[in-house]
Design a protein around this nucleic acid. Structure first.
Lengths: 230, 230
DNA sequence: ACGCCCTTGTGAACACGCGCACAAAGTGGG
DNA sequence: CCCACTTTGTGCGCGTGTTCACAAGGGCGT
């Protein structure tokens, strides 16, 4: 019997749109670097590989930031998207697992530059404990709870072997982390209110293999109503 | 005026289903390792974090491989999913870019074990050319075309900096690669018939940041019709 | 000041995927 | 042999997302 909308203040942005905003943002920053001042939905759509109507609808969820007949002001749109995504503030991130993947993540430029700060690198292996990676010392996994609380870590990155992932996740959640990015090939169990996103190489490969097989099968001409051949 | 279905032989599997099959497969292999012979949709759904009806519908696209009142035979289902995903044959993969990420990918267990074979590791940086990574020598990027043709590479993995990604992609495509897995933060342009999948750390982080901000905002009680608190 | 042209913002139809709920089908016990 | 129980396979309604197509709006040349 509860009313379907307890909060009329529902400026909810569709999940699919949220997933595309970072792509637009990156394209806009590239335009900004080249000194471009305005851009049309058509042009931005082309560089980001989406339909222009979809792009306009996506942007319309943030407000009416375009000018008809002209397009969108690049800098202003960058600011609006950044704000909407929460990139105008800094988020502390802790990475657990300093193998090749953890190192790759730590050295990844996208971290420090825009809105994210690596608060700690942690590992259970004593062999890497003293190492300095991306300018940060590798700490012991047992300091996880301290680090999370002291550094106000809200995003935890799991780059451990599969066997350790769930336990690390549990400790993250217990310590107060509410967003987890998981690179280990396991399904993580978390309580409601905690967001988990999964990045899984082997799943991606298997999806590609599926489509490869389809192409190899008798069905040569694919592209069902594709964007048309070049 | 073309009829909507020129090919009645459309055993097309929904894309969403394809994306979940690898997850089921992994769970099934874990059950198999533990010696479990059969599993119900309810149980398998729980371990993979999906709805049991969805799981049954997914599996029904492959055929009627379950037994009512009993469940699914683990080994048989593993075989059927593997076959559907094209994992009963080996796919040759070439990885370009042998930085931390490339090394992480090369050392990733999921490769050699099931259906994938690393045909080559390539890089443009002469400093890493002699190195041996995951038992393979690092070759020069200029051998890309030769390797692709000789080793029948059908899947190309791009783990280069963003600036180099499009060119590597073009060379892959030109040499005959029809599936690309891209880790560089750029939108790749490919002709029709080539599949591209993107893995982008910074996008994932930004999506998490968005939800973090939502939680931090006034809107405390989230979980709109969630699975219910534990 | 007027009108042409360009681009945005969105209404409406359509496609896709999800999950409930139930009939069909097979098992095992008595 | 029959019945009660378990589990699959799926029809159907719902919600989300995508795309087309167009009216509304703003700039710019004359």
């Amino acid at each position: 019997m509860t009313p379907p909308e307890p909060r009329p203040r529902d400026r909810g942005i569709p999940e699919a749109t949220v997933a595309r905003l970072p792509v637009y943002l990156r394209a806009l920053q590239a335009l900004d670097d080249r000194g471009i001042l305005t851009v049309s939905s058509e042009h931005l759509a082309e560089t980001t590989g989406v339909n222009s109507a979809k792009l306009r609808k996506d942007l319309s969820h943030l407000g009416s930031y375009g000018t008809r007949g002209v397009g969108y002001e690049v800098e202003y749109l960058i600011y609006q998207i950044s704000r909407e995504l929460g990139l105008t503030q800094d988020w502390s991130v802790a990475i657990v697992g300093v193998g090749n993947l953890g190192r790759a993540l730590a050295n990844y430029g996208g971290f420090g530059t825009r809105g994210f700060r690596i608060a700690a690198l942690l590992d259970a292996d004593t062999a890497v404990l003293g190492d300095t990676v991306a300018g940060l010392p590798v700490g012991h996994i047992d300091t996880l709870e301290d680090v999370v609380r002291k550094e106000k870590v809200s995003i935890g990155v799991i780059a451990t072997p599969a066997a350790a992932a769930q336990e690390v996740c549990d400790r993250f959640v217990e310590a107060g982390v509410t967003s987890v990015l998981n690179f280990a090939p396991v399904v993580l169990n978390v309580p409601p209110g905690v967001d988990v996103r999964k990045v899984d190489l082997s799943i991606e490969l298997q999806i590609l293999a599926f489509h490869e097989q389809r192409k190899a099968d008798g069905y040569a001409g694919l592209d069902p109503f594709g964007k048309g051949p070049a």
